[in-house]
Computed example of a mutant assay.
Amino acid sequence: MSEHRFILLDAGASRPTRVPLPPAMAVKAGTEDTEGRFSLLEVVVAQEIPRHVHHVSDECVYVLDGELAVEFDDRTHTVAAGQFVLLPHGVPHALRPAGPRPPRVLQISSPGGWECFLQDMIENRTQISRQGRLDPAPLNRIAARHQITYEEPGQPGPAQAAAPDSDSGSGSGSGSNGSGSTSETASGTGTSSGQRESA
């Protein structure tokens, strides 16, 4: 029954995750919480999220604080606090801080799964980063399980890459991505568990 899915989180709290996420990432509603319909995260975008495409999920970003640069379909937009952007699946995009401080955003993926991708990234962080930056080639081996493709130098753009087999894994990203959406948004570990209450 739907009342058993009621969740009330305290300020700053995050839903429990299989792998601890950095403090700059808080899962407010996970894929399991929404029966796969969407996932909602509060994220501080501390570094660039490379150009990539979600083959299945639409990504939504609402900026709470700061400014976010959004590269979408070869155009760059500056999204300020109070503004919203919808990034439909199938179109390459990239995200990065645009102001003097990292922006804080709400990130929604529909269908859900972005937090699952982030946890896989964190588990493999030593394999997917080089000199503090994401390495698209090893990252794509993980992203493929979540129907995401990152642009690799010298390779066809992510929009031209064939969508991975959806049976190879579950979930999808953002932002995010996403967010590379990710250990790419911030560093550190740890997550606080939220409260689940029945109405």
Rank of each mutant, 00 (worst) to 15 (best):
A94F: 12
C116Y: 09
D120C: 03
A98W: 14
T126G: 01
R104I: 00
H93G: 11
I122K: 09
E115P: 05
R96E: 15
C116F: 08
S129H: 03
P100R: 08
E115T: 02
Q107D: 10
W114M: 09
F117S: 09
P111Q: 12
R101F: 07
L106W: 08
L106N: 01
P111M: 14
T126K: 09
I108H: 04
F117N: 05
P97D: 11
E115G: 03
A94I: 07
P97C: 10
T126A: 08
G113K: 05
A98L: 15
L118A: 13
G99S: 15
R96W: 13
M121T: 02
I122H: 10
M121F: 10
Q131G: 07
C116N: 11
N124F: 07
R104Q: 07
R104W: 04
R104K: 10
P103Q: 07
C116W: 10
S109N: 13
L106F: 14
E115S: 02
F117G: 10
S110C: 13
Q119E: 15
L95V: 13
E123H: 00
Q107G: 11
E115R: 00
S129R: 06
S109H: 13
P102K: 11
R101A: 13
Q127D: 10
P100L: 02
T126W: 08
L118V: 11
S129L: 04
E115D: 05
P97Y: 08
R104D: 03
Q131F: 11
R96A: 15
L106Y: 10
I108N: 05
R101T: 08
D120S: 10
S129K: 01
N124P: 00
L106S: 03
T126R: 11
D120G: 01
I122P: 04
D120K: 01
S110G: 10
E115W: 01
F117I: 09
